[in-house]
Design a binder for these strands. Sequence first.
DNA 1: CGTCCCGTTGACACATCTCAATCTCAGTGG
DNA 2: CCACTGAGATTGAGATGTGTCAACGGGACG
Lengths: 242, 242
Amino acid sequence: MHSSATSNPTCNLCLFAPFCTSEEEILHTGRQASLAVKQYRKLNRNEVLCLPNNKFQNLYAIQKGTLKTYQVEADGRELIREFYFAGEILGYEAIYTGHYPFSAVAISETLICEIPYANFLKLLHSKPALQRRILYLISRQLNIGSYLVSTTAEQRLAAFLIELATRLHPAETRYAFLLPMSRQDIGNYLRLSAETISRVFSRLQKNKMILIDHKKINLLQPDKLKQVADGLWTSNKGNTVK
Amino acid sequence: MHSSATSNPTCNLCLFAPFCTSEEEILHTGRQASLAVKQYRKLNRNEVLCLPNNKFQNLYAIQKGTLKTYQVEADGRELIREFYFAGEILGYEAIYTGHYPFSAVAISETLICEIPYANFLKLLHSKPALQRRILYLISRQLNIGSYLVSTTAEQRLAAFLIELATRLHPAETRYAFLLPMSRQDIGNYLRLSAETISRVFSRLQKNKMILIDHKKINLLQPDKLKQVADGLWTSNKGNTVK
DNA sequence: CGTCCCGTTGACACATCTCAATCTCAGTGG
DNA sequence: CCACTGAGATTGAGATGTGTCAACGGGACG
């Protein structure tokens, strides 16, 4: 365990750190400080954070780990709305609906911090700089996943990988990383079958754009991947330039 | 022309009406009041509001009419990111990127109001109720179009039609309306070809769920359409229940 | 009244899905 | 330490929904 909230590298980047009840305070007192703007909680793999129609009360800052939000279709298929990584905030959608419009589940061991929405509003109002910053981050949410509009499987997966490289580690882009989610999860997010994800991975590897070994992935040529994402390249029928 | 800003029915619902320079003030003085929080502007069909990489300065409130935002793919295809109708606010995405990440074009005669972002921030800070309301509306944006994750053409189009019924007229749902956009535009938004849109319209009409005559559309059975959207019904192979 | 754009419909091509078999790897217990 | 097990990943073959290309038809508008 970390000795204090701010000793966690992600916390250093967190907007709410100044208003946060430290982990050690929680651990030592054995109870959560009721006045805390932010509270610490641990989720194991596959543990549920919230369910559809749960009443909206908190936003959640992810300190470490990964979550997915999803809804289940009538036919039983799971449609992933978004992944959330360390440093990101989950729950903005619920401000409008009044309840969480999805299930949120940890896909790896995850640490989250609760931000009661009432406190969130108070803080925003008292700190203009924080308000600007939060609008900036919500605006970012509106831009995330805009590549889902792309048509081909290759385009979407390539764009997804590039985005992962920028989102997986806060304030830093790394082109070699561990995929936190399964092929099935990626498919449920990109609206492709797990088999298609697997096949496209194989194609991209054959073209030397990536190296992939189970969860370990290395984006060898991010620039070329970007071209694939933009539809400038395709390897569907041998490596042909359009 | 209207005699004042608040005489326009949409203005009555607008959050910024209290801080707005009235139309008649603008018309009578012949120049736009520089201190105005909100300014009036008219766009003809196909007139451009902003282009990709234009510097972000204003949010735009739509007073009347319809706009689309889109980006052009490498292969020349136009991908529509969102439609905007009367009472909605365009431009949140640009807060993050610092420039508009899309083209915005009127698809019918449209009246818009400019909200300089600096003024927007000041207003939000001085009016906590306005701040809450704006967060509420941005949250709504995060939920709009969530049905784009659906797999089949029928599901996406049915969900689109239902959403249109609720968004087309502020604070009121109407199941008979005029489609403001072309089949091509709908296809560019739902990631389907114009031909597919046409075919699905025909199928839905054959099943008595809608009446469609060029731009005029009537959602005869919104509840059944909702079931189609949710994947509970399909008419792909004759009208079969799954 | 003619032109042109938009929408409709048909035939065929193709990307992705579905179903299925096989394989690897991690975890578990003997 | 090894065998067993189950979940996830890979790969193949056939099915299918949607895209593409094309022809046709009908309003809207000048």
